[in-house]
């Protein structure tokens, strides 16, 4: 479960519709994952106390910057119980992508998050294509390739 390469989601998950995700952003506005249908979504569950999460932020910034025009949306769901901790983290490691908040962790439960961080790649049809646990800079190139390939797919 801590493999750091992309693992295809389990057979039962491959291509299954992504669970619902409706959460508030820092300004209290509600966002719905279903509204991103037609885009490729990189969804990341993180917390301020998680070391690899810190390393993943610069990479996710790059990803957003490079592929936003190709129809990629990077969405990060923060699972800190204290909003203050997330704010401190973001002050040190700014995010140029969407950050939503779920202090209760209900979304993490619905998505079956097994470790921090956990991320999901969702295709334009709203189906989960793969899941990824942990983050290592060396696996970034492989992730890039996976995402680029999915962006080519209509």
């Amino acid at each position: 479960m801590l493999t750091l390469a992309w693992v295809p989601a389990r057979a039962a998950d491959t291509g299954v519709p992504a669970p619902a995700l409706r959460l508030l952003d820092g300004q209290g506005r509600q966002h719905d994952l279903a509204g991103l249908r037609g885009k490729v979504v990189y969804l990341d569950f993180w917390a301020s106390w998680c070391g690899p999460c810190r390393q993943s932020f610069p990479w996710m910034n790059q990803l957003q910057q490079r592929h936003a025009k190709d129809g990629l949306a990077v969405v990060a769901v923060n699972l800190d119980t204290e909003a203050k901790d997330a704010a401190t983290f973001l002050a040190r490691y700014p995010a140029s992508f969407s950050v939503l908040y779920d202090a209760a962790g209900a979304s993490a439960k619905a998505w079956g998050v097994k470790a921090m961080p956990s991320s999901y790649l969702i295709d334009r049809q709203g189906a989960i294509r793969s899941r990824h646990i942990g983050f290592r800079p060396s696996s970034a190139a492989e992730l890039d390739a996976q995402i680029a390939a999915l962006l080519q797919t209509p």
Binding site: H31, A73, K84, D85, A91, F97
Partner: peptide, 26 residues
């Protein structure tokens, strides 16, 4: 509602230093 791609304002606010929390990352 569409996800807003850029929420820079989220963290443009100044926050307390939170040194103990920051050190928690270590």
């Amino acid at each position: 509602m569409q996800l807003t791609p850029d929420l820079q304002t989220d963290h443009a606010i100044s926050h307390p230093l939170g040194l103990l929390t920051a050190a928690a990352l270590a």
